[in-house]
Nucleic acid binder design. Structure first.
Lengths: 132, 132
DNA sequence: TGTATTGGTTCCAGTGACTGGAAGGTCAAG
DNA sequence: CTTGACCTTCCAGTCACTGGAACCAATACA
């Protein structure tokens, strides 16, 4: 399988697949003409990477997940711990964004939004931190 | 005011302040010894930047906000539009993360988390997209 | 057989918004 | 006179790709 087909089979752009090879996540064989030749096992790994990345795991976490995927003697607790940590990461990111969203939409609401220059948003951005 | 004091007054690291100068967000005077010398106006701008960035505006948006801040003839509607767009950006980011969070915590919950290798999380990551 | 198109290769540079670190100049205190 | 804090510039690294140039290989069709 050439890289284009591997891309279609995994949902990853060819550029990204080459990048994953560069950083050691996958190592397909080469044909005599220099083209990469992806096996079914390679495709499985690429799909695994696509799905892991889409769930928010970093490349390093994907590396770890792949090694657990390969490890027939893994403990599922290790995988679960990784997933739970990621859930906590995502939750704290959500909380942070919600706080931002509250602040910012309150500011936006307080602004008349007309053609005059007076603007509570600008005033807030320029305000002294101690005045918070 | 030297850069260290400017940093303390604005809540920004000196490194960041130099970077902001490099990309043209601020242009303090220089003393005869080459040290940057920040005026009160500079400090206001730095605080404005610190606050805008902390509210999630990109550097380019901060550039625009600063120009509105400087513009005594601004229309507050322009500022409000920017803030509202940012609120929408944040909301869609939150929705995306919530969807991730639901998927991932359901996966984590489905896993026994013991010392056996069977793991629905790994199975999901490896599954065919069509099986979704 | 020629050619046009598609798809593959490598390598280099850029993204955003900083951050770290090296090598060296300046200044105030003791 | 030295120590230490602070300042300077410049270069490289972060993260996970992405774009583009220049070139080679394979295939379809006239």
């Amino acid at each position: 399988m050439n890289i284009g087909d591997a891309g279609r089979a995994s949902g990853l752009p060819a550029k990204t697949i080459r990048y994953y090879e560069e950083i050691g996540l996958i190592a397909p064989e080469r044909r005599s003409n220099g083209y990469r030749n992806y096996s079914q096992t390679d495709i499985h790994r690429l799909r695994f990477l696509q799905r892991s990345r889409s769930l928010g795991f970093t490349i390093d976490e994907c590396r770890l997940l792949l090694s657990l995927y390969d490890d027939e003697d893994r403990a599922s607790a290790d995988v679960k711990a990784l997933a739970e940590q990621k859930v906590r990461d995502i939750e704290s990111k959500i909380a942070e964004l919600q706080s931002l969203q509250r602040t910012l939409s309150a500011l936006a609401q307080s602004c008349q939004g007309n053609d005059r220059p007076e603007c509570p948003i600008i005033d807030d951005l320029a305000r002294l931190p101690s005045v918070v």
